[in-house]
């Protein structure tokens, strides 16, 4: 028995070394709450992929599951903490970052990770979002941006591109969209990355770097909503959706190169694309460190 276990472990280690990943079955066994299945996500939805990438990133850094708290607000992506076998707080709409602030300050040893959506994060939760970034609190925010309010049936979001359709923008959206990553950077987050889910490795690497960063990390993942967004905007099936992403995103380095060197008429088309990649990574004292220093200074 002991021999078999040892062998299995060695086999796992070997495969991990070879592929850099453990397989889905092993991930499921180690990380998921069995009692929560089946999950709620639609066919073709990207949120399950986000979960898989997150678990692989956690596996890479060998995260201590007993010392980790996942939080979320309300919406499709906010259901994710329920599936992971860790302490988790599924809170009210938009407020997860404020709850997370209380958790992290109270016990700085806990790893604190938040799943949020575009509406949850920058719509109803916008104020908490900018202030968490300003404080550079040591938490990791994984924001699933699907350009729409999915759980409630496809209403227009602060991220919905201008002209796109939603149930509450039946004649086309007249508002310009928010860029969450730009907001995170300017508000003070120290690690910011954005990827679409057609990239298999880069988002996972960014989540890993975010988890390791000692400060506010913001990872925006562009994720297809096949039910509420694709249907109303006639994107097509999931393969077409993924091509659609390729067409609408550009690596940050390329984007900046084009900005400088492409002719005006070409740039006019390019500039509407979303920059993807690691957009910011800097070292700065976190809120917890600053608070602890102050306590050392004034304690009796």
């Amino acid at each position: 028995m002991a021999e078999e276990q040892k062998f299995e472990t060695e086999e796992k280690v070997e495969r991990k070394q070879k592929t850099g990943m453990i397989n889905a079955k092993e991930l499921e066994e180690k990380y998921l709450r069995k009692g929560m299945m089946p999950h709620i996500f639609c066919t073709g939805c990207g949120i399950g992929t986000v979960l898989g990438l997150t678990l692989r990133a956690m596996e890479e850094i060998d995260m201590d599951l007993d010392n980790t708290v996942f939080l979320s607000g309300i919406g499709c992506s906010s259901r994710l903490p329920g599936y992971i076998d860790v302490d988790s707080l599924h809170t009210t709409h938009g407020r997860a970052l404020a709850f997370a602030t209380g958790v992290k300050i109270t016990n700085p040893d806990l790893n604190v990770v938040i799943f949020t959506g575009d509406g949850d994060c920058i719509g109803i939760g916008g104020n908490h979002f900018i202030h968490a970034a300003r404080r550079n609190i040591d938490i990791t925010v994984i924001a699933v941006n699907n350009y729409i309010y999915g759980m409630t049936g496809g209403q227009v979001a602060p991220t919905t591109p201008e002209g796109d359709y939603a149930t509450t923008a039946p004649h086309g959206n007249v508002e310009p969209p928010f860029d969450m990553s730009e907001m995170a950077m300017s508000a003070g987050a120290t690690y910011v990355a954005r990827w679409d889910l057609t990239k298999p490795v880069q988002p996972m690497k960014s989540i890993k770097e975010g988890l390791e960063n000692k400060g506010m990390s913001f990872i925006e993942l562009l994720s297809p909503c096949t039910t509420a967004y694709a249907r109303q905007n006639k994107v097509g099936d999931i393969q077409e959706f993924w091509e659609w992403y390729d067409d609408r995103t550009m690596l940050a380095e390329e984007y900046e190169f084009e900005e400088e060197f492409s002719p005006m008429e070409e740039w006019e088309e390019i500039k509407e694309k979303m920059k993807i990649g690691v957009l910011k990574h800097e070292e700065k004292k976190s809120l917890g460190e600053r608070m602890q220093e102050k306590i050392e200074e004034v304690k009796i």
């Binding site: 708290v69 809170t91 938009g94």
Partner: peptide
């Protein structure tokens, strides 16, 4: 720990988070 939150929605939320973290 004292923290001044960005609004009252946040202050009560931080208190609930803190309580679950043991304070």
């Amino acid at each position: 720990k004292y923290i001044q939150m960005e609004d009252e929605l946040g202050s009560i939320a931080s208190v609930i988070g803190s309580s679950w973290a043991g304070a």
